[in-house]
Amino acid sequence: MGRTVNADGVELWVERRGQGPDVLLISGLGDPVEAWQSQLDGLADRYRLTAFDNRGAGRTPLPEEPLSVPRMADDAAALLRALQVPAAHVAGFSGGSFIAQELALRHPDVVRSLVLMSTVARPDAYFRAMTRFWRWMVERAPDERAMLEAFFLWIYTPRAHADGMVDQFVEETLAFEHPQSVEAFQRQLAAFADHDTLDRLGRITAPTLVLSGELDLATPPRLGRVVADSIPGAGFEVLPGEAHQPFQEVPDVFNARVDAFWREVEAGG
């Protein structure tokens, strides 16, 4: 069961599961903690996992003040300190990987290692055009179902569209009791579109693994490669046949890979 945690004055909705080395899971655009269900279920026998709703997603309210990636990184650091976690393995997905980058730069003491899934250091022209389209799409789609069906074209593989997985995700999202508002979607999107760490990534010292999906349209492997090349010693892997969210589509594959990485980091001290 989840609960609200006061993280330096911000009421974040948090779910924790398992025992072992601490892992912090940071969600992407619009995603609540439920997006990490396969990790909360599949890795809890080896790790103590913490997932939370970013500002404006799920059960965490949207603030009146401006929303930014550095501010959300400060939230993540404040959450770990509120939970009395000295340092954690941090896994961030998409916009959550942007937050994870800033967390490692602004609060290196709380980051044991980094997994950056579907990540970008500096948005390129395609990324900026895509996010501009998403901004008006969420306002002008005929209804929420139509918006999700369109949005998910960038997110999941053709395989997931063909085998019914995307239909299931649409139904689960529509049934979720804490939907994200249009304003919250747009403000999170604007914060992620402004993300830029390219000239600072060389300061990250935490062991880092960058993962990209071969078929990812939103954050293709060429952008993940830039991140990995900019972080000293970072590993880079492309998951064949996968798109933007392999941690949901092929959770066993994703869980096994991050588990192996975290075991390597733990063994290295």
Rank of each mutant, 00 (worst) to 15 (best):
Leu116Trp: 08
Ser68Trp: 12
Ala121Glu: 00
Phe261Asp: 02
Ala35Thr: 12
Gln19Cys: 12
Gln37Ser: 14
Glu65Asn: 03
Ala150Met: 11
Glu65Tyr: 04
Ala160Gly: 10
Val85Ala: 04
Thr131Val: 15
Arg187His: 12
Met1His: 14
Pro251Leu: 11
Gly235His: 05
Met130Glu: 12
Leu67Ser: 06
Val253Trp: 06
Ala76Lys: 11
Ser27Trp: 00
Glu149Cys: 14
Gly213Val: 14
Pro142Met: 00
Ala243Leu: 11
Glu249Ser: 02
Arg59Gln: 13
Phe247Glu: 01
Arg200Glu: 09
Asp194Met: 06
Asp45Arg: 02
Ala91His: 09
Pro66Arg: 09
Ser113Pro: 09
Ser118Gly: 15
Pro220Lys: 02
Ala51Leu: 05
Arg200Lys: 11
Val166Gly: 07
Asp229Phe: 06
Ala141Asp: 13
Leu223Lys: 10
Val110Cys: 04
Gly9Lys: 09
Asp199His: 15
Arg3Cys: 01
Gln168Arg: 12
Leu49Val: 02
Trp13Thr: 12
Arg81Cys: 03
Asp53Pro: 07
Gln101Met: 03
His178Met: 10
Asp229Glu: 12
Ala88Leu: 03
Asp8Met: 00
Ala129Phe: 01
Arg135His: 14
Glu11Gly: 12
Ser38Val: 02
Phe261Thr: 13
Thr131His: 13
Ala228Met: 02
Glu264Ser: 08
Arg3Ile: 00
Asp31Ile: 03
Phe236Ala: 09
Leu25Lys: 00
Glu242Trp: 01
Tyr156Arg: 01
Arg59Gly: 09
Trp154Ala: 14
Ala162Ile: 06
Ala260His: 06
Asp45Gly: 05
Thr119Gly: 09
Glu171Arg: 15
Ala73Ser: 10
Leu12Met: 05
Pro251Trp: 02
Arg17Ile: 03
Val210Trp: 07
Ala121Lys: 09
Ala51Lys: 01
Asp252Tyr: 04
Leu25Tyr: 00
Pro240Lys: 04
Asp143Tyr: 00
Leu148Thr: 06
Phe247Ala: 01
Pro63Ser: 07
Val238Asn: 01
Arg16Ala: 13
Ser27Tyr: 04
Val265Phe: 01
Thr197Met: 03
Asp8Lys: 10
Asp229Ser: 13
Met117Gly: 00
Gln39Arg: 11
Pro61Glu: 07
Asn255Lys: 01
Phe151Val: 11
Asp74Gly: 12
Ala193Glu: 06
Trp154Thr: 14
Glu249Lys: 00
Ser181Gly: 09
Arg145Leu: 08
Gln180Ile: 15
Phe261Gln: 13
Asp8Asn: 14
Phe261Lys: 15
Arg203Ala: 15
Leu83Cys: 10
Ser38Gly: 07
Gly18Trp: 01
Phe98Leu: 05
Thr219Met: 13
Phe185Thr: 04
Arg16Glu: 15
Ala73Pro: 03
Val238Met: 05
Val90Asn: 10
Pro251Glu: 03
Arg225His: 00
Ala243Cys: 01
Gln245Val: 14
Phe151Trp: 06
Pro240Ala: 08
Leu201Gly: 07
Arg222Ser: 13
Glu249Thr: 02
Thr208Met: 12
Ile155Arg: 06
Thr119Arg: 05
Pro32Glu: 13
Glu65Gln: 06
Tyr156Asp: 05
